[in-house]
């Protein structure tokens, strides 16, 4: 049984692409066959984050328009054996793909891969509708900022309306010090509003930026806290019950309401 998961947020720049790349790499590192679909058509950056830009010949619209076969457009990752990327088109506009085509595409990918992970564009327009069309599950990424949480809430409402219920939440770029000083929303505040299950919390970590700029993923970095956070998220996606890690000595993660796996 394969899973088709969309990674979405509403607000841009909160870490959807980073999350998609790290979950994909993390699952592949555990021996799973994974394909990442860049549905951010027109912008395209999943390939850059993975360091695969120079390998692109065909893209998602070439597949949907029948210019090439699906197999031809898939790019094999250079580090992880089972990891593949279906790149977005950079030049064409967002209406180049429609929800029906996305559904069909996801179905075809699910026949070959254990995990199909879709990187959603920001916003709630056509690009968003395309990205969620073929998904069975959703991961919502937010940062601990009021505007990001508000957009996440809007997106959760839209996902529910599209029958994608119980999305799982990832809170990215948390800074324990700022939360402690009341300068940033805390995990509990966010869960209190969004009322969805928490899949993981990823700390602010400059290693994310450093690895991204090198076209690498931080998930394989044994020493980094963000890498550990992504590895935990990956295990939860697989259905394991992994306790939340303590980002902070004051133990503010201790009173969480729910900890879940995706299965």
């Amino acid at each position: 049984m394969s899973e088709i998961i969309v990674v979405t947020s509403g607000k841009g720049g909160v870490g959807k692409t980073t999350t998609t790349a790290n979950i994909g790499a993390g699952l592949a590192a555990l021996g799973h066959k994974v394909v990442l679909v860049d549905a951010d058509i027109g912008l395209r950056n999943l390939d850059v984050v993975l360091g695969l830009e120079n390998r692109i010949v065909y893209d998602i619209t070439d597949v949907t328009e029948g210019h090439c076969r699906l197999r031809q457009a898939l790019i094999k990752d250079k580090r992880y054996e089972g990891l593949f990327l279906l790149p977005a088109a950079q030049t064409k506009d967002k209406t180049a793909v429609n929800p029906e085509q996305m559904k069909k595409l996801c179905g075809e990918l699910a026949a070959e891969f254990e995990y199909v992970i879709i990187d959603c564009p920001a916003g709630i327009e056509q690009g968003f509708r395309n990205a969620i069309a073929g998904a069975q599950k959703a991961i919502v990424v937010t940062t601990p900022e009021v505007a990001a949480v508000r957009d996440a809430d809007r997106v959760i409402g839209l996902l529910e309306a599209a029958e994608l219920r119980n999305p799982a939440l990832i809170i990215n770029r948390i800074r324990p010090k700022m939360v402690r000083h009341g300068d940033m929303m805390g995990i509990e505040d966010i869960i209190d509003i969004l009322a969805v299950d928490l899949l993981g919390v990823v700390p602010e970590d400059e290693l994310v930026v450093i690895s991204t700029n090198r076209g690498e993923t931080v998930v394989s970095d044994e020493r980094s806290r963000s890498g550990q956070a992504y590895r935990n998220i990956v295990r939860r996606i697989k259905g394991e019950a992994v306790p939340m890690m303590n980002l902070d000595d004051s133990g503010f993660l201790g009173r969480l309401r729910r900890i879940i796996g995706l299965k």
């Binding site: 957009d151 809430d153 809007r154 959760i156 409402g157």
Partner: peptide
């Protein structure tokens, strides 16, 4: 019988 979310 549900939570009303932003935009609803």
């Amino acid at each position: 019988r549900r939570t009303l979310r932003s935009g609803q």
